[in-house]
């Protein structure tokens, strides 16, 4: 990529810079301020150093939320990625049916998140929901409000329902970009279906799958609205993930210091994963150029 050096291009970027700085940097400064200070109100702050970080790192509550968050994120990844690849492989390659599949698959992606929550809340209820009621008929007590495992199954099923299509669409886009010649070569070699997948399709899908994994990890790592509507983080704190816990802390209890310290650590994780995402993107672009 031989782009001419031109520092006046900064003027074109300036509006974006100002706008995002306004909505990102100023709030983050506030967070940093709270993280290192304590207050008795009246805007009087005094320095407490890393006290809040210590407190947060020593609290079981934070570790509990983090643990649940990691279990949640890795579970949905373990389900959505293989399922997404399998569905993408099963999809018609072209024609009207391919379009119909794309449209139907994409539908859950475009539903407001609180409505996704509402849909699953009513779908899983034992009295008026199809799922909960049917499970009740075969003798499974699926009471979201009291049964922690039912709550977990619901939020995981909901996320699989909501986001597997994203993996499908990405994998499908990746499959579309494989030239026919590759398949013909494999046919001449009499490669088995598995061999075609393993040595032709999977290597070509590597890039999009990495994007899918990172996007799904990030978005599930900050999930708030859907589980909040379905379970409210309960029963107890069984489905209280990081964001739910943070909002509870910050807006519910106004524990500004711990919430801010929590936020900063949360943000560092995000930064790390974003960096991985960025590196992969840059490498993909470079690879594409080499192939052209």
């Amino acid at each position: 990529m031989d782009k001419p050096q031109n520092n006046r291009a900064w003027f074109m970027v300036l509006p974006v810079l100002l706008l995002v700085a306004f909505s990102a940097i100023i709030p983050l400064m506030t967070v940093v301020n709270y993280a290192f200070n304590d207050t008795f109100g009246n805007n009087a702050f005094f320095w407490v150093g890393v006290e809040w970080f210590k407190e947060t790192l020593e609290s079981d509550r934070m570790w509990g939320a983090l643990q649940r968050q990691l279990i949640f994120s890795f579970t949905i990844l373990a389900i959505e990625v293989p399922l997404g690849i399998a569905v993408a492989l099963a999809m018609p390659k072209k024609g009207v049916w391919a379009s119909v599949c794309l449209v139907l698959f994409a539908l859950p992606l475009l539903i407001p998140w609180n409505v996704v929550g509402t849909i699953w809340q009513v779908f899983a209820r034992i009295d008026i929901g199809l799922l909960g009621y049917s499970l009740g008929l075969i003798g499974i007590d699926f009471n979201l409000g009291q049964n922690a495992s039912a709550a977990w199954v619901s939020v995981i099923m909901m996320d699989v329902w909501h986001w597997t299509s994203l993996v499908v669409l990405l994998a499908y886009a990746g499959l579309q970009s494989i030239p026919d010649a590759y398949y013909q070569a494999a046919k001449i070699d009499q490669a088995s279906r598995w061999a075609v997948f393993r040595y032709v399709e999977l290597p070509k899908l590597k890039g999009v799958l990495l994007i899918a994994v990172l996007l799904r990890f990030m978005d599930s790592f900050m999930i708030y609205t859907e589980p909040f509507v379905v379970t409210g983080g309960g029963p107890g704190s069984a489905t209280t993930f990081l964001s739910i816990d943070l909002v509870k802390m910050a807006l519910g209890q106004f524990d500004l210091g711990p919430a801010a310290a929590f936020s900063i650590m949360y943000f560092l994780v995000i930064l790390l994963v974003s960096w991985a995402f960025y590196t992969i993107m840059v490498n993909l672009d470079r690879e594409e150029e080499r192939n052209e």
């Binding site: 709030p27 983050l28 506030t30 790592f221 900050m222 708030y224 964001s243 739910i244 936020s263």
Partner: peptide, 8 residues
């Protein structure tokens, strides 16, 4: 995460 930004 939007949750980080709600309070600020």
């Amino acid at each position: 995460p939007p949750a980080v930004f709600v309070l600020p």
